[in-house]
């Protein structure tokens, strides 16, 4: 049976791996910032990396992965639903970009 100290070291090893993964993902965002691509492409790539980065942090740093599956589903489904519901304004934003708010 593993001692408390051994379990602690094992846990620390896992957290260090997660920490370096998150650091690497954060560095990747800085690399993307210097790529010669359009703002829309840059936004999509950065958003994708940020979502993965945040997902890893929530699951392992905040221990959501080791909580009950019902709670994990509650947090994920509820949060995604509300975040998606906030996207209704984008069509209006593009209308302002493309015709200065005067097109019907």
């Amino acid at each position: 049976m593993a001692t408390v100290a051994e379990q602690k070291n094992e846990g620390m090893g896992k957290y260090l791996v997660v920490y370096f993964c998150i650091l690497a993902l954060a560095a990747l965002q800085f690399v993307i910032a210097y790529q010669n691509i359009t703002a829309a492409q840059m936004f999509r790539r950065m958003l994708s990396v940020a979502v993965v980065e945040a997902g890893v942090a929530v699951m392992f740093f905040m221990h959501l992965w080791s909580e009950k599956r019902g709670f994990l589903l509650f947090v994920v489904v509820f949060t995604i639903f509300v975040l998606l519901a906030m996207q209704f304004g984008w069509t209006d934003s593009f209308r302002l970009t493309h015709c200065g708010g005067y097109c019907s």
């Binding site: 954060a26 965002q29 800085f30 993307i32 910032a33 210097y34 703002a39 840059m42 936004f43 950065m46 958003l47 990396v49 940020a50 980065e53 945040a54 942090a57 929530v58 740093f61 905040m62």
Partner: peptide, 25 residues
């Protein structure tokens, strides 16, 4: 600690959208 990780998590979105997308090239 949960709260502190959350503050960290928010920064993961603030950096790309507020800083990196507004870099002067």
């Amino acid at each position: 600690g949960l709260y502190w990780h959350f503050v960290d998590l928010v920064w993961m979105f603030v950096v790309p959208f507020v800083y990196l997308l507004n870099l002067a090239h």
